[in-house]
């Protein structure tokens, strides 16, 4: 098993190099390189800030030297200094926010898993039933709803009209004065809408996917064989079918990482959540290139990590891979 993990990580190394090449390319694709940009967003692109850039990228050097230096710094998470007024190290700025984003992503993924999987199973087992049809229509609707719009509607409904849920930030103003239980409740209330919305897009897709893998598995010989033993339908479905149908879903969950990260830009901005997505958005608005490149790289790295974790999870769940490595 350990050998499998190591091998899986090694296979990702060329991808990591590719990621760094593309990030490096993005900086250089701008007309005139990273400092020759005529700015729409930030008219205050001063001469002083160009000098800072020039020094940072070593633009007097040949391209491959520039890339080599960029790669070396990347390896130690040195993304340079932020262009913003505080001029802090980019990694420091990311580090204090990445946990917020990751925990919301993990919560959303858990929600997706907990809701989509039973939904998919039930739709497949009762294929063609009223439930299945309603679920199908709902999924289609879910695919088409712009989630940021849904966010607005839910904010209007629960935040403005009903006043049930807070619509901004992670904690209330009076957070510090609350007792412990109140603090937990306060945080939870702030997370309800963002987590639900982040999960929403994935719910539709994954429940659909679970449904189709279930339908696929139910047709297999070993399901007929399980039935022929006289197992009740419940046992056939949960003991025999679901276990097999879940395997591909693990991979798909891993693949949903980039979508969730992209979503966090939108929802952290809408809900004023101080996470990496909001930081990225602010960076884009103020053309804080080192920050943008830093988060872009981290985002790609997290995606890769998600894929690796999914593959490892798959290997753990599937005895065919597990025992093959052990033996």
């Amino acid at each position: 098993m350990l050998r499998y993990v190591v091998r899986r990580v090694l296979v990702s190394v060329p991808l990591l190099i590719g990621i760094s090449l593309i990030t490096f390319g993005v900086i250089n694709m701008a007309p005139g390189g990273p400092i020759g940009i005529s700015s729409d967003l930030n008219p205050k692109a001063t001469a002083e800030y160009r000098e800072r850039l020039k020094a940072y990228y070593g633009l007097d050097q040949p391209l491959y030297v520039q890339y080599g230096r960029w790669l070396g710094r990347m390896a130690v998470l040195d993304f340079g200094d932020s262009f913003s007024a505080d001029g802090r190290k980019v990694w420091d700025k990311i580090r204090e926010r990445i946990l917020v984003t990751l925990s919301i992503n993990v919560l959303s993924m858990a929600l997706i898993f907990l809701v989509a999987v039973p939904l998919g199973i039930y739709s497949a087992v009762r294929k063609g039933s009223v439930f299945d049809r309603v679920a199908t229509v709902t999924v289609f609707t879910g695919f088409a709803i712009p989630t940021f719009w849904l966010a607005l509607l839910l904010m209007i409904l629960f935040g403005v009209r009903l006043g049930w849920l807070p619509i901004s930030g992670l904690v209330s103003l009076e957070y510090d004065t609350l007792p412990l239980a109140g603090k937990i409740l306060d945080r939870a209330a702030h997370l309800v809408l963002p987590v639900f919305l982040m999960a929403f897009g994935g719910l539709a897709g994954i429940s659909r996917y679970m449904r189709s893998t279930m339908l696929e598995v139910i047709r297999q010989d070993y399901i007929a064989a399980a039935r022929s033993k006289g197992l009740p339908e419940r046992a056939v479905v949960f003991r025999h079918a679901v276990r097999n149908a879940l395997l591909p879903v693990i991979t798909i969950l891993g693949l949903s990482v980039p979508g969730l990260l992209g979503g966090s830009v939108i929802f952290e901005t809408i809900f004023a959540i101080p996470g990496m997505g909001q930081l990225f958005f602010q960076g884009v608005m103020s053309r804080d290139y080192p920050l943008i490149m830093g988060i872009l790289t981290i985002g790609a790295f997290l995606t890769l990590l998600g894929n690796i974790l999914a593959d490892v999870g798959y290997a753990l769940a599937d005895p065919r891979i597990k025992t093959e490595r052990a033996g």
Binding site: Q220, D221, Y222, A225, R239, N244, D318, R320
Partner: peptide, 16 residues
């Protein structure tokens, strides 16, 4: 009871 044609596919791969 029934013995199936394909022993390769009629045993569940994730159960011992």
């Amino acid at each position: 009871s029934m013995i199936f044609q394909e022993p390769m596919t009629s045993l569940n791969p994730v159960l011992t």
